[in-house]
Design a protein around this nucleic acid. Structure first.
Length: 733
DNA sequence: TAAACCGTTGTTTTT
DNA sequence: CAACGGTTTA
């Protein structure tokens, strides 16, 4: 049993302001905490302090931005006072609440949570059914429209009433049909998790009261990035005891495109009268040089409340700026610098590389592979969106929620079992006619005389498969997935070139399920699916792995490293072109300022060393394009910077490098085809392969980089080249 | 029915 | 460049 710490430990190493926030008693509390001022520490110590003062652990609830942050917070509180508190994201909290309460608003608790791709598919279907022009009514645009309305709690009826012109009226109409489709499938999208929770609270005050009674204290981290529904949920929960603690930093608001409202933080004192405000301005993280540059950058923003970060740290090393001919040269330079830092004693996990967009990871991966440097692309969402995983999830989802036609459609002929598009269309029409769900029609397949004998056979055997899997629902999730893969011969029926890849992916998923079974006994299949859809990118990052993490600036929020590389400081990338086009609240400045905050978040993650780079050429849409250095570079105080003189020299050799290390082979469609098929589909020395770009060749060397393989191939026409076979560092640990 | 082929299109960040 | 949708062909 962990040793119970005394109050002294909880308050150890805190400054006066931090202590003020930690020890504050009853009533609303706002902690405005600049970057690196010990924000997370304050919230953790405050929870510990509350428990130490006798608040029962089950009467505290804390909200974080990601599941990883939630786990971390729970763990650290536990380490401090030996008690377990409920820490969650808003979305997970709402999903859990709705599993027990959604019946109050006439919905079924076995609902499916659909991700963005599912939502797009539903909208695409509606656009098609209504025979709308897909250019004017692009499903993605409509979904964006819907998301914005939901963030502002606007119903389809509201939107229809306020719509101006035929186009907007049509958007509102599709929104309405989208809601109907979700209801028919017994599905909720991400926003619905928040909205339906609010609806339960509104329509059933007695239910809200139960929660208000239960929670004596509500704490919310990253308040600057909460949207209106989240703000209202937090406000509702603290309604009785009025003990809300909100922690945030306006300068780090980077999710306005997802409805984040700075007003939640800025107008906190009006929303929660009598709120006490504590401001933390002393930075303990970054060297003076880094902090000075970051402050100079953020001070360019006009829409902000003046706040100065102080440090007592020494100046430290200057920020190193590098400029390169192209992103390959940039990547190689980063890899070389990382190598030097590691020689100097830094561990890979003390270093991080940040970029604006995920696709920027590719040249970096190549460069790190070339130097055999351990790295990990932080992208778990990518893993869960892989076709194989989505297929398996659809099977499981259909077992939990038979009304999930979306999932049913996905797997009814996956793998191919002879239920073609025509048959599916007939089944759908029948379902519509009978006002039943698809799987019910499948169940009655044997009696449908308008089905041909072959189709009927296929439909019946699909129903038998479904029943067989249904009977296994009580097994562990890992076991269920294994049986499902077995029963469908899922991997064996993949195209030969993709089989090995598919096997690897599903094995990883089984491993992930096994871990879930171990960690969440009693969580059930529903809990598993919920966890798998509500993942964030950083959730899959194994911070204890000895690898340099690559991640987006958005994912980097809340983290810190000894050394940080910020790559791709180019116009149209950072600030991103699309972002500037968005024009938040009709103002291009607001959008630019958000991009600047993103840059600021990136810089302030660094403790000692900061490297900022840009390239003159970048591969966009498969074409090499010339790009200009970011305007943000000019905004940095020159005295904090030192230009790397090697960067100019190494620029010329980029092409050699690109030639030597072709590119990461994408997993989706392996571009290496094995020619002699006496082997068992393995890439080994001596095996002849074919590459779409370089023709035929022979494998001369296979080596490992972590879990990933590097294959050197001697092409008949082009000589020796190396390939990094995409592995699965994206898989959650 | 399913594989193979062709043309279009999109192009940020993510719970 | 790749992902997707639609068409053609076996």
């Amino acid at each position: 049993m962990p040793r119970r710490k005394r109050t002294g430990d909880i308050l150890a190493d805190l400054t006066d302001s931090q202590r003020e926030a930690v020890c504050y008693g009853e009533g609303p509390l706002l902690v405005v905490a600049g970057a690196g001022t010990g924000k997370t520490r304050v919230i953790i110590r405050r929870i510990a302090s509350l428990l130490d003062r006798g608040v029962p652990p089950d009467r505290v609830v804390a909200m974080t931005f990601t599941n990883k942050a939630a786990d971390e917070m729970r763990r650290r509180v536990e380490a401090l006072v030996g008690k377990d508190v409920y820490v969650s994201t808003f979305h997970s909290f709402c999903a859990r609440l709705l599993r027990t309460e959604i019946a109050h608003i006439g919905r079924d608790p076995s609902f499916t949570i659909c991700d963005r791709a599912d939502s797009v598919r539903i909208i695409r279907r509606i656009v098609k059914d209504r025979e709308l022009d897909p250019a004017t009514f692009a499903p993605r645009d409509i979904l964006a429209y819907v998301a914005v309305r939901k963030d502002r709690i606007r119903s389809p009826q509201d939107c229809a009433e306020q719509a101006i012109g035929i186009v907007e009226r049509t958007f509102a109409d599709v929104y309405g049909r989208y809601e109907e489709a979700l209801a028919a499938n017994n599905a909720l999208d991400f926003d619905d998790l928040l909205l339906k929770t609010l609806e339960v609270f509104r329509r059933r005050p007695e239910v809200l009261q139960e929660y208000q009674n239960a929670y004596l204290h509500v704490l919310v981290d990253e308040y600057q990035d909460t949207n209106l529904p989240q703000h209202l949920i937090a406000r509702a929960l603290q309604g009785k005891h009025r003990n809300i603690t909100a922690v945030g930093d306006p300068d780090q608001m980077i999710y306005s495109w997802r409805g984040a409202r700075l007003e939640n933080l800025m107008e906190f004192e009006e929303d929660f009268p009598g709120a006490h405000v504590v401001t933390l301005e002393r930075n303990y993280r970054s060297s003076a040089n880094i902090l000075r540059a970051a402050s100079a950058c953020i001070q360019r923003n006009v829409f902000r409340r003046e706040k100065t970060l102080l440090t007592e740290r020494e100046a430290g090393e200057r920020i190193v700026a590098g400029e390169f001919a192209d992103s390959f040269a940039e990547g190689r330079w980063v890899a070389e610098k990382v190598n030097e830092l590691m020689d100097g004693g830094l561990r890979p996990a003390d270093i991080a590389v940040f970029y604006r967009t995920k696709q920027q990871s590719l040249p970096l991966e190549d460069a790190f592979a070339a130097l055999a440097l351990p790295h990990q692309v932080v992208d778990s969402i990518g893993f869960f969106e892989r076709r194989e995983i989505k297929d398996v999830r659809a099977y499981l989802q259909l077992l939990v929620n038979p009304r999930d036609n979306q999932s049913c459609l996905r797997i009814i002929n996956t793998p191919r079992r002879g239920i073609g598009a025509r048959t599916v269309a007939k089944l759908q029409a029948e379902a519509q006619r009978r006002k039943q769900c698809l799987i019910e029609v499948v169940r009655d397949g044997a009696e449908l005389d308008w089905l041909g004998p072959r189709a009927k056979n296929a439909v019946t055997s699909f129903w038998q498969l479904y029943e067989r899997l249904s009977s296994l629902k009580r097994a562990t999730v890992a076991e269920l997935i294994r049986k499902l893969l077995d029963a469908t011969d899922y991997v064996g029926r993949q195209p030969a070139e993709e089989r090995a890849d598919a096997q690897e992916i599903v094995d990883l998923f089984v491993g992930y399920a096994r871990q879930y079974d171990r960690n969440s006994p009693g969580g059930g299949l529903i809990g598993f699916l919920q966890q798998a859809v509500l993942v964030s990118d950083v959730d899959g990052w194994n911070a204890r792995a000895d690898a340099v993490p690559f991640m987006t600036l958005h994912s980097a929020k809340g983290l810190e490293f000894d050394a940080v590389f910020l790559v791709g400081l180019e116009e149209d990338i950072l600030p991103h072109r699309r972002a500037l086009e968005e024009q938040i609240q009709g103002s291009e400045d607001a959008a630019l300022e958000e991009e600047r905050r993103l840059f600021y978040v990136g810089m302030t993650r660094a403790r000692h060393r900061l490297f900022i780079t840009c390239a003159h050429k970048r591969v966009v849409r498969g074409r090499e394009e010339t790009v200009a250095p970011s305007r943000f570079l000019d905004e940095l105080p020159q005295e904090c910077l030192v230009r790397d003189e090697e960067s100019v020299a190494s620029a010329g050799s980029a092409q050699d490098f690109a030639r030597d290390m072709d590119r990461v082979l994408k997993r989706k469609r392996a571009s290496l085809r094995i020619l002699d098929d006496e082997g068992d589909g393995e890439l080994a020395c001596g095996v002849r392969v074919s590459h779409p770009g370089y023709g035929d060749g022979e494998i001369v060397e296979v080596s490992m980089l972590g879990k990933r393989r590097i294959v050197r191939i001697n092409f008949d026409a082009h000589g020796v080249m190396s390939f990094l076979l995409a592995g699965d560092d994206a898989a959650p640990a």
